[in-house]
């Protein structure tokens, strides 16, 4: 009887511990969000979005250049990551077990596991060193390379969810294969692929390491692709490690903006998935 009681007590204790684990695991997020709001919100005036960074000692100032820079970098990355990722995903979904497909699938996972700083030094070696200057393009390409495996993976998964009967129906109507892929399969899988693309964008939007030696950052207004460009994460980093209180405040406000951007994209991604294709896809 006492053995049973001991076992029951152990049961309650261990199950209780998992509750503790759940609380502990959600605490950091709540802390981070709380601190971001507490320290960032007061600096977050409309000026922050429209003004340029100010030198030390001058109050106010904003990150308009960094916000625009981040958007430009995301655009370049998407212009590279989306077509390559979707194309490669189509290939993998069509070839499935082929030797080349297996290799590409494996290497795509390898690329996904690569530390982002390694992509940064790679992009520097190819796109900065030969030209002698940092550039938005180099940063965008580094981020685009990060997106490729993410988009490839979700594209393949989503296409595999499209029932094969739809592919057959299109082929039997006299659709060429490319047309079948574009107007039937890709279109049916689109909500899932949009989700994957948004998740990938959310992930690269806050990346800093690949930009350190490529986009480099810029205190001035620049939207030129072959010049260094400002980016929110770079600006946050520079301000965070500076010794000035005024800049620390700016860093918190920048971080708040960055996280809001990332959260909006993440929520949009969830919403896109909810609109998954209907009942014919069984």
């Amino acid at each position: 009887m006492s053995a049973l009681r001991r076992r029951k007590a152990g049961n309650v204790f261990m199950l209780g511990l998992t509750y503790v684990a759940a609380v502990l695991a959600t605490l950091p997020l709540l802390f981070i969000l709380f601190h971001l709001l507490q320290k960032g919100a007061s600096t977050l005036t409309p000026d922050f979005f429209t003004n340029m960074p100010r030198p030390v000692g001058e109050a106010g100032g904003g990150m308009s250049n960094a916000i625009v820079g981040t958007l430009i970098l995301i655009a370049i990355a998407a212009a590279i990551g989306l077509p390559v990722g979707i194309g490669a995903g189509l290939y993998l979904a069509e070839k499935r077990g082929g030797a080349l497909a297996m290799t590409v699938r494996y290497l795509s996972d390898v690329l996904n596991g690569l530390p982002s700083i390694v992509l940064g030094i790679f992009a520097w070696q190819f796109l900065v060193r030969p030209f002698g200057n940092f550039s938005a393009l180099a940063g965008g390409i580094a981020l685009g390379a990060m997106m490729i495996p993410l988009v490839t993976r979700t594209t393949e998964e989503m296409i595999r969810l499209v029932p094969n009967s739809l592919r057959e129906a299109a082929l039997a109507l006299g659709y060429p294969r490319w047309r079948t892929s574009m107007s039937v399969i890709l279109r049916t899988a689109l909500p899932g692929i949009v989700t994957g693309a948004l998740v990938a964008v959310a992930r690269i939007a806050g990346e800093t390491a690949p930009l350190l030696f490529t986009a480099f950052g810029n205190q001035f207004w620049s939207t030129t692709l072959d010049e260094p460009i400002a980016a929110l994460p770079l600006q946050i980093f520079a301000y965070a490690i500076s010794p000035y209180d005024e800049w620390h405040k700016q860093a918190w406000a920048g971080a708040l903006v960055l996280i809001v951007i990332v959260l909006i994209i993440s929520l949009a991604a969830r919403h896109a998935t909810r609109a998954r294709f209907g009942s014919a896809a069984d």
Partner: peptide, 21 residues
């Protein structure tokens, strides 16, 4: 959702939070 969201927070924000908190 909350735990998954930890993965969405940019590294530099973790760093900022790390330095000051």
């Amino acid at each position: 959702f909350l735990v998954d969201l930890l993965a969405a927070i940019p590294s530099v924000v973790y760093g900022l939070w790390g330095i000051f908190f």
